[in-house]
């Protein structure tokens, strides 16, 4: 046992001291785990796509508690993994303390901003995408009442909610928006039954389009609206296919693209000289196709040309700055809320 151990330690020491910059991509997921059908899974899909295209395998890890964050990061950095992509805002503190200690490793954090030389921070303009979803919801609604169901009550979800309300009011000033959160504990991300019940209660109050920004709970909303022949809007990944004909659209957040892009950039950077990996902030909005609404074969019968036109018009205005979508996080409040 002892000899084995020494060999292991020696090997670890060797691999750490070997080459400064290798291309050994890695992803570390948040507590939700890589099969959450939404956010973390999008990151996994991006990495898988890269693997399929280039044949380069990647290493991944799902943490089981907060104490493992730094442990996993350092472990991966020491093993020479590069770049290391971490998924979720809860990683910010861990990256902040680990990244400066491994200057030769490139880190990518998704959904948060960390100020360090070797960190690329990717954030998404969820309010902008939700704004477009809101416009579509208002135009598709016959009752002038639409719904919003969030996952856990955290500021991130308030961001989605606020942008959505803005979009609804943009298209239909007098429309009513019913809002609810699935819960206040992390279970709320994965409670489709409860989210479905909330959807039913919103439909009882005459809502006929419901936007589900609730991670795994969203499937319950999609099911409930489809059962009642009403419409739902999916989130994060494209969920149009889940209830064909009953999902108006999906507000997608291209986490997969961000992960794939990070891998590609690093591969290129290592090939060139190891210096060209772009770090710093990368805010992906409508202009970069980082967020958006999806039109595909599953929702083509639900979307009218007028809707497409309105969405396109609003999109251009948001990109040009004529429409400023409010970001809930800047002041913890939402100016659109009136009803």
């Amino acid at each position: 046992m002892k000899r084995l151990l020494l060999t292991a330690v020696a090997l670890a020491a060797l691999s750490a001291g070997a080459v400064a910059k290798d291309f050994k991509p890695a992803v570390i997921y948040d507590m939700g785990g890589k099969n959450d059908k939404s956010f973390n899974e999008a990151a996994y899909n991006g990495a898988q796509k890269f693997k399929k295209e280039t044949g380069v395998d990647f290493r991944d890890f799902e943490i089981a508690n907060d104490a493992q964050r730094e442990q996993a990061l350092r472990r991966f950095a020491r093993d020479g993994d590069n770049p290391i992509v971490v998924v979720g805002f809860s990683w910010a503190n861990a990256i902040q303390s680990v990244a400066p200690k491994y200057p030769d490793t490139d880190f990518v954090i998704i959904d948060a901003t960390v100020d360090a030389k070797n960190v690329r921070s990717v954030t998404f303009a969820e309010p902008e995408g939700s704004y477009l979803a809101g416009i579509m919801a208002a135009m598709a609604s016959k009752t002038h009442t639409v719904g919003f169901i969030g996952g856990m009550d955290v500021p991130l979800i308030r961001k989605f909610e606020c942008g959505y309300i803005g979009g609804v009011k943009h298209a239909d000033k007098d429309a009513k928006v019913l809002t609810a959160m699935t819960g206040t504990t992390p279970d709320a991300w994965n409670d489709p039954v409860k989210a479905g019940e909330i959807a039913k209660s919103q439909m009882d109050q005459s809502a006929d389009v419901i936007y589900a920004a609730a991670g795994g709970s969203g499937t319950g909303v999609l099911q409930a609206t489809a059962d009642a022949s009403k419409l739902a809007i999916g989130v994060d990944s494209n969920q149009n296919y889940m209830q064909p004909g009953h999902v108006l659209t999906s507000m997608v957040k291209r986490v997969d693209v961000a992960v794939e892009q990070a891998f590609k950039d690093e591969q290129q950077a290592v090939k060139d000289d190891g210096k060209s990996f772009k770090t710093g902030e990368q805010h992906l909005g409508l202009a970069d196709n980082g967020v958006g609404v999806v039109f595909d074969k599953y929702n083509k019968d639900l979307v009218t040309d007028k809707m497409k036109q309105a969405v396109e018009e609003a999109k251009q205005k948001i990109i040009s700055g004529d429409i400023k979508v409010h970001d809930y996080l800047t002041d913890d409040s939402c100016p659109y809320q009136s009803s």
Binding site: F89, S90, A92, V154, L156, T184, D331
Partner: peptide
Amino acid sequence: ASSLMVYLLVHVLKPVGAMAP
């Protein structure tokens, strides 16, 4: 306890503008 903590962390103890509760 779990509900109480969510309330406190989301509405009371969280610094303004921060994402994580």
